[in-house]
């Protein structure tokens, strides 16, 4: 069964499959998918970029949702605690956040191990570090979007939930959340585009994403302009694809609204 699935996935691979762009246009040249072309390496980079962005998204959204909940709490201390978080991570450059997470986590784990009596050099996974750093940045921005969406939902919605005898958690899930998604979707779509572009920073800590793979190809083949142009084109294609996808999601989220 899994063989069948992988066969279908290979057949439909848009970059290096039998009807893939690199296979059709590459021929036997630099973009071909075999041992003497760079097509398959770059296709791998595209996969890494997409995987990283998709893996970051749910974590960032969940964190952002919790932060937005905390930011509208009645407790002053909680608001202050969350305010520090958003101020720091919206003020730091993403690149610096990435370095701080990457080296800081290594130091932290090493210190913990040394405390336990184990002396060892630890190198943490670049994918994990990139995911954490991007999720932290994404959550601090998405919390703002979600917070303003929360403010757009009238108090009567909660009160109606109370009047129907629902618990607050149930009101949140069944009444508030569906409206929240609809209101916050354009802002979250923008943040997704930014996230997709920010994944390029992980190439600097050595993860083989689009930029990293095209850089290697450019250095080896001495065709820098061609390969970096290709990288830009791939990011553009991802942006176009996501805006089409976001359009679909937006229409889906508005399916309950009256047509005007």
């Amino acid at each position: 069964m899994s063989g069948l699935f992988s066969a279908i996935a290979t057949a439909l691979d848009p970059l290096c499959g039998p009807v893939g762009i690199f296979t059709l246009l590459g021929g036997g040249g630099m973009l071909s998918c075999g041992a003497n072309g760079w097509g398959d390496e770059i296709a791998f980079g595209v996969k890494v970029t997409i995987t990283l962005a998709l893996a970051t998204l749910p974590i960032g959204l969940l964190l952002g949702f919790l932060i937005a909940l905390a930011a509208q709490s009645e407790d002053k201390l909680l608001r202050a605690a969350v305010g520090i978080y958003t101020t720091i991570f919206r003020g730091l450059p993403e690149l610096l956040t990435l370095f701080i997470v990457y080296y800081g986590l290594q130091l932290l784990i090493q210190a913990l191990l040394a405390w336990l009596g184990i002396e060892q050099r630890i190198e943490i996974n670049a994918f994990l570090a990139g995911m954490i750093a991007l999720a932290v940045v994404f959550s601090s921005y998405s919390s703002e979007v979600l917070l303003s969406a929360f403010r757009a939902i009238p108090k009567g919605q909660y009160e109606a939930g109370d009047a129907l005898g629902m618990r607050r958690s149930r009101t949140m899930l069944l009444v508030v959340l569906p409206q929240l998604i609809r209101i916050a979707l354009p802002g979250l779509g923008n943040l997704w585009m930014i996230l997709l572009k920010d994944t390029s920073y992980v190439s600097i800590i050595g993860l083989s994403d689009i930029v990293r793979q095209t850089s290697v190809a450019a250095r080896v083949s001495k065709e820098a302009f061609f390969f970096y142009f290709l990288a830009c084109l791939l990011y553009l294609a991802l942006a176009v694809l996501s805006s089409v996808g976001l359009g679909f999601i937006e229409r889906w989220s508005r399916r309950g609204e009256a047509r005007r």
Partner: peptide
């Protein structure tokens, strides 16, 4: 707006 600044800089 659709491509990362890093890729533009490298280009």
């Amino acid at each position: 707006r659709g491509t990362p600044l890093l890729a533009q800089l490298f280009l």
